[in-house]
Design a protein around this nucleic acid. Sequence first.
DNA 1: TTTTTTATTTCAATCGTTTGCGGTTCAATT
DNA 2: AATTGAACCGCAAACGATTGAAATAAAAAA
Lengths: 336, 336
Amino acid sequence: MKRQITIKDIATKLGLSTSTVSRALKDHPDISPKTRTAVKELAGLLGYRPNRIALNLRNNSTRTIGLIIPEIEHYFFSAIINGIEEIAYKNDYSVMVFQSNESYKREVINTQAVLTNRVDGVLVSFSKETSDFSHFQKLIDNEIPVVFFDRTTEELPADQVVADDYQGAFIAVNHLIERGCKRIAHFAAPQNLQIGKSRLSGYHDALLKHNIHFQHDLVHLADTYEIAKKTAHDILRRPEAPDGFFAVNDMSAIAIIKAARELGKRVPQDVKVVGFENSKSSAICDPELTTIDQFGFELGREACIMLLKRLKEGDDVEFKPIKKVIKTKLVIRSST
Amino acid sequence: MKRQITIKDIATKLGLSTSTVSRALKDHPDISPKTRTAVKELAGLLGYRPNRIALNLRNNSTRTIGLIIPEIEHYFFSAIINGIEEIAYKNDYSVMVFQSNESYKREVINTQAVLTNRVDGVLVSFSKETSDFSHFQKLIDNEIPVVFFDRTTEELPADQVVADDYQGAFIAVNHLIERGCKRIAHFAAPQNLQIGKSRLSGYHDALLKHNIHFQHDLVHLADTYEIAKKTAHDILRRPEAPDGFFAVNDMSAIAIIKAARELGKRVPQDVKVVGFENSKSSAICDPELTTIDQFGFELGREACIMLLKRLKEGDDVEFKPIKKVIKTKLVIRSST
DNA sequence: TTTTTTATTTCAATCGTTTGCGGTTCAATT
DNA sequence: AATTGAACCGCAAACGATTGAAATAAAAAA
């Protein structure tokens, strides 16, 4: 590797000390205008760039934030990354990405990786498998600020940013009822995730509001395309098939539409479907999917802003976890 | 920030020098078994973790690779990241992600960012706007290995990994012809991108092979959903409307299907469509899209493997750029 | 007992930058 | 002419770990 230009190179070439060069470069008042310009000129000529690693060591900070997410391939998460990166970029931070691939084991390794990489702070949305949080506690013990987003927990003293899952589910199901649905099924996420619980309870309460009886056999764990498709097939063949579906994410919802069509049912005439995410796919599938916009981009932004605020304040103030809730919005399309 | 345990802490607590502790931790033969175990025990007890930043400074290496891509939200790119991260993870490297958002200006800033972050190597897929490559040349001048993937150029002395765009386009169009299409339109990518040229020329040559006349007015620049939809609307209303489409990516292809349906044309009976990417959306749209699998995951893997090889070999050997081509595959679904 | 060898351990420099403090130089004041 | 005080600049330590060379201790050989 070619040696980079250092402050020392400039110093020797100009017959100065490194301290003088350092100060000259940052307009310290002690330095005479003459040497200052000389230094700056030579620095520009030589293409000097301060060695970030040395600064990292000195400041004990890397201006890097770690991001631990389940899977980058999900539209929702890539939208979030987009939001995170925008804020990080504006504040001169860089983002290191680590994927858990929905594996608890891998996630634990990820937390170790962010530790060894000495990131200044961490943003986390944990895996479906995660129910023990001690690996995140370790980050907090190391005084590394952690902000959880989307998939969060109340068990740890950490900031959170979440979509208003309860509200989103409520308006989704409410919308189905208003469109005339009588039997509404819910395809849910695992109940160890808060989002799973919140959306289920939004579903539940919307039914309640309209005096519709909550039926356990209309709720199924089905948060992937494949499982949802299979489950929808089964359920739609029952004598008392549902006339409405609220799915925990868009992929699951699209699978329902597919299954319905394969069984000769028309969407939205015979079956209405609402998803959750407002992904690209929801806008291009056929019929276009009514869904809940989760504002992933904003969610990412907010999470990053929160983290940076923590980084700025340091430990002068006592820590009080903040929970930020992003409102969701119903996007009505042709599936309802 | 809480001070981390350092080697010095262990040294003073044990009445040893830092050098001894350092060597003990890495099983240097000079150290007596007694002190070695003592050191290791205390290190474990205190939860010592070597300070990566200090090592970075000393080794002048960060074990980090920079990734510059247009947009993370594209399925293709997130698949690539997936592949990259898998290889990086296995080799104990971390990945820093920078998005250009298809902006040349932002991309230039990204190259500066990877420089200041002192990454060991860089993976690049450049923006649509990019036609000047001097910012990447600067990376190479700084002896930072660069591997281009997907959107590449021959103008720079750097490794490349690309899908076999020509072949993919050829078999796509060939397939359309075999299914009986007589007038095949091509929705192309910008021609400053090599992928744009290659796919166009694959299209061209497939027509040629079947003695179909190449018509300029059947080729349009339309590589986004919105533009493709508008263009498809226009073109499908012509008296001599095409009966087949080869689109440069899946989003564009799906837009064509939509437009066709909106005009009352049936897919695949009246109009057949082939995309390029094999994205998630292509498998769930209606009708399901015939497309070319670009193997983004493998492409990412190969690019990362190539970069790591360069990092390993150092500058002992003279540099000869390598170009790796990943074969593509036709995935036949219901749109043809 | 003295010398030589071997086994352990420490010293000090290095990576690149910053910064408190001390040191020079030179002009202004008394 | 002696004193004061800006104005400028350099020394050296610090961040945490590594490593060649030197030093010390202990054991073996003479």
